[in-house]
Design a protein around this nucleic acid. Structure first.
Lengths: 211, 211
DNA sequence: CGCCTATTTGAAAACCGTCAAAGTATGTGG
DNA sequence: CCACATACTTTGACGGTTTTCAAATAGGCG
């Protein structure tokens, strides 16, 4: 996605510095605090980026699907990864060494602009979520997460209650209670490991309610 | 700060596109959702960037002191500001028009790298705060905010209880109760509109406690 | 069919927000 | 210099949302 502005020649150049890497389900690519040697793009499967809290709970910053990049924040500077990355299912990722990536960027300013755009977007999202976590109730936050996910992935969401909880910043039990309510109100359907949005307008209304 | 790598000639060039703007205390520079026409740097005083919640409460994303830039996320792309900016005291800011800023960047790639660094840092901070808001108690979050502020500003922090609360994501009353505890434990001193950290190691211990 | 994981439900407790009221600095105008 | 307004700080009581702990149910895969 970030390389879509490149010519065939440039893509060939890119292919010389990219390597492929397979992952088993649950396998970690890197841990928060690791030295950041690679920059990643998902090829197949699904990868989550998360942070662990002192209480042992984890907070999911984002899921990444094929074509999306991650680990980029650390790759620009010689700093450790600020979060961990774990494969949700068996996956394949492309990776580029830090130095190769940086020298490639120096030759391709339009890619740099694309990356600034992505960083900006992520910063916007993170700051909106901060406001929501600080001020909104669990139901509204969870509705917001579901909306964001449908916008990105369509009406059928392949996530467990626990994953939804870890994205919303609540517990599995509370997520289940809220999701059950949404099911009773015919806003969503759900089965094991899956949620289907059937009434998006009403879901959106929930996020906008002032109380 | 972001321009410190420039030569005198380049700074002269820069000065032709920069204009100065004075602000009264409490005055807003822009509101969340406004069309983003300017990119800003604080010259004098103090500016806060915040988001309003549907409940009317506000969440402070950051305070900016002289030399720091803000409004940059929206300036790169034709998007509205994701947050509002308000002068905390009478202040002076430098501002650069979006188009001028972008054409300046095109000629100065080293400034672009500097900005990527700043965006990355802000993203790291935002994501850490997300984890904290989702998983940590008010006391730990507030201790973390105080630590961050001392690292940046020194041991004496010129903030009211309400400002601390709006940064921590809690209410003024709860912030007061936590701060009073810290005072009783001789970790901080405080007076009206000011907090002084006197036992930083113990403050840091608080943020690391698993419970 | 049996095991593992995901989902569900209930009850109690904790944390924190809300509301109300009062105390205390700071500055301003007379 | 004092009175007064204003904003910041403090305290208490109460209630609600959410977490925690415990246990039971149900779905899917070998």
């Amino acid at each position: 996605l970030i390389f879509s502005s490149l010519s065939d020649d440039e893509l060939t150049e890119l292919s010389t510095i990219v390597s492929e890497h397979s992952l088993n389900s649950e396998q970690y690519l890197f841990w928060e605090g690791d030295y950041a040697d690679y920059f990643y793009i998902v090829a197949q499967g699904k990868v989550k980026v998360l942070k662990h809290a002192t209480t042992g709970k984890e907070f999911i910053i984002a899921f990444f699907s094929p074509g999306e990049m991650f680990g980029e924040v650390a790759a620009f500077e010689k700093k450790p990864y600020p979060a961990s990355a774990q494969a949700v299912s068996a996956s394949v990722v492309f990776r580029i060494q830090r130095e190769d990536f940086i020298s490639f960027l120096n030759k391709h300013p339009q890619v740099v602009l694309r990356i600034i755009g992505i960083l900006s977007e992520r910063l916007r999202v993170a700051q909106s979520r901060l406001r929501d976590l600080a001020a909104e109730r669990v139901e509204q936050r969870l509705a917001g997460i579901l909306l964001m996910l449908t916008t990105k992935l369509g009406p059928t969401l392949p996530f467990t209650r626990q994953e939804i909880a870890d994205m919303t910043g609540t517990t599995t039990e509370t997520a289940i209670r809220v999701i059950s309510q949404l099911k009773d109100r015919r806003i969503i359907k759900s089965s094991r490991g899956q949620i289907e949005i059937i009434d998006e307008p009403n879901l959106r209304r929930l996020t906008e309610d002032s109380h």
